[in-house]
Amino acid sequence: MPAFADSNGRHAAAVTPRIAVIVFPGSNCEHDVAAALGGLGGAAELVWHRERSLAGFDAVVLPGGFAHGDYLRPGAIARFSPVMAAVAAVAAEGAPVLGICNGFQVLTEAGLLPGALQKNRGLTFLCTDAELRVTSDRSVLTAGVAVGRALTIPINHFEGNYTCDASTLAQLRDEDRIVLRYAENPNGSVDDIAGICNEAGNVVGLMPHPERACDPLLGSGDGAVLLASFLATAGARAASADSAA
């Protein structure tokens, strides 16, 4: 039995979800996120970006780092990695897909999430704890987490200034897709956005690093709240696939 439960104590499944953690050349948070997911009861496996199939996985994480050196723009070249067609396919099927930091940038470049991440307003690389508010529970990352809950999770980025056009922003608000906001805007992001989801709620991107806040020894355990929600959804998916098989 997996040990994870979301913040409502919801034990989603008796099946351990298999999570693909995509490794691009230049990714550098893949082991952290795999360890965090493993500690929460998931079975995370590193998957090289040249892989073309994600068969057998219940969810996908695009970790932080500098995929393909961030050359041209963060995520601009990663979106053409062979694995990205499979990521788009499982996202369309409803599998939970999470992009953290550079992974968020890759998801916007790939068109799986709207908008773009620009250089921080102050042109400063930011590496600090950020106070966040959960502002929507309609994503796989925040399902079961109380709206309004405060979380302390580190940020570590130069290009985390989320931007989009006015109609996209209105749509994100209307559809309740802004899942996390900064309590104090560190980087100039429009509407204090720290994380958003797609229309279905299964694809989520955020700049903060929940995997670095999964133990009070690391300064905060708040990231585990989000990753547990993600795993609960993945576990439910694994269980339904198991019972259908």
């Binding site: 041209l72 723009r73 601009a76 070249i77 053409f80 916007t108 470049e109 709207p114 908008g115 773009a116 620009q118 931007t163 989009c164 056009d165």
Partner: peptide, 8 residues
């Protein structure tokens, strides 16, 4: 398709 991001 590659060199620019039409969003920005």
């Amino acid at each position: 398709r590659l060199l620019s991001n039409p969003v920005i």
